[in-house]
Design a protein around this nucleic acid. Structure first.
Lengths: 163, 163
DNA sequence: AAAGATTGAAAAGTCAATCTTT
DNA sequence: AAAGATTGACTTTTCAATCTTT
C-alpha cells in the first residue's frame, strides 16, 4: 500500500522538521485500520439503507436502546453512539416520526428526556439485524479464526483501557 | 460493555425470528472495534481542527497527494480516501481556495482533472503531521507492544485480502 | 450558574441531472 | 454510449444561542 509517510522529528524538545521517510510501523497500521473500518462501515451502511432504509446511526440508536432494556436519556444515547448531542436530537426526531422510538419525560429530572424503543421499533431492529449481522459476518467475522478473535480482543482491551 | 445483542436465527432457509441472546463473539468484537475507531477518529479530527483548522478528510487528501508524489486524478483521490466523488470535488474546492492544492488538466485524457499539492500545501501537511502523528501515538501506537503490532498486522492482512 | 435538550442559521454531504471528452 | 467531473436541489450535520429545570 503506502510504505512511506510523514514523520515528525524532534531535537531538544522542539519540533524541527518533518520529512518523507518510513513512518513508525504502528502509525502505518493505524492508517490501514482506519481505512478498513471506514470501508466496511460504508458497505454496511449502504446495505442497511438499501434493504431497510436505515443508516448505520439509526441502527446504532435502536440497538443501544434495545441493549439498555430501559429507556435512555437523550445525552446518554448521544454518548453511547458517539453522535453529537444536537445531531442526536434530530436523528431521534426522524426515528420518532417513523414510529420506531418515543420521547418521554424523565420522572426524576425534568430537564431530561428519555427515549424508548416502541414495539414497532423493536420489530424494525430485528429485521435490520438480519441484514446487518449477515453483513458483519461477511466483511469481518467470517475472515477471522479463533486465534484472530482472541488476539484482537486482547488488543482492543488495551486500546480501550482507561478512556 | 454490552455482552448481549441480536442474533438472526434461521430454519429451513427462511428467517424465522430474532431474539435477544448472546451474539457471535466476533460480531461483538466488530462493535467494539467500530466504537474504538470512531472515538479515536473523532478525537484526532478535533485535534486537527483545533490546532491546524483541518478536518481528518482534508488531512487525508493532502496525505494521499503527498504519498503519490505525482498529481492524482480526482476520481482516484476519491477512491483512495473513500470520499464520495461529488463530495471530493467540494473538499478539493475548499482546499484550493486556501491554496493547499491546485487543479490541472490531465494531459492524456481531457475529461480528467488532476489535483496537485502546492508548496504551501506540503508545508501545511508537514505542520499538521506533527499534530496528527502525536495524536496517533497517543491514542493508538503507544498502547501497543511489538506483539500487538505483529498480530494486528496479520489480522488486517486477512481482513483486507481480496477487497 | 450549570446541566439537559432543542432550535435557527450556516456548512457540509449526497443524489440525480448535466456537461464535456472519449 | 460511457467515463470523468461538476452543479443544483435536497438532506443531514454542526455551532452557537436559547429555553427550562436543577
Amino acid at each position: 500500500m503506502i510504505p512511506y509517510g510523514l514523520t515528525a522529528e524532534r531535537a531538544t524538545g522542539t519540533i524541527v522538521f518533518v520529512t518523507l521517510r518510513p513512518t513508525d510501523p504502528a502509525v502505518d497500521l493505524w492508517h490501514r485500520l482506519l481505512r478498513f473500518e471506514r470501508g466496511a462501515a460504508l458497505l454496511l451502511d449502504n446495505e442497511l439503507q438499501d434493504e431497510r432504509e436505515l443508516s448505520l446511526e439509526d441502527y446504532d440508536i435502536l440497538f443501544q436502546l434495545h441493549a439498555s432494556v430501559e429507556p435512555m436519556r437523550m445525552s446518554d444515547l448521544a454518548a453511547a453512539t458517539l453522535i453529537a448531542r444536537s445531531s442526536c436530537t434530530r436523528v431521534v426526531d426522524r426515528l420518532a416520526e417513523r414510529g420506531w422510538v418515543q420521547r418521554r419525560a424523565h420522572e426524576a429530572d425534568r430537564r431530561s428526556v428519555v427515549v424508548a424503543l416502541t414495539t414497532a421499533g423493536k420489530q424494525c431492529l430485528r429485521r435490520a439485524a438480519v441484514t446487518h449481522v449477515r453483513g458483519i459476518e461477511s466483511v469481518f467475522a467470517s475472515r477471522l479464526d479463533g486465534r484472530d478473535v482472541q488476539d484482537l480482543t486482547r488488543i482492543l482491551d488495551r486500546l480501550l483501557a482507561d478512556r
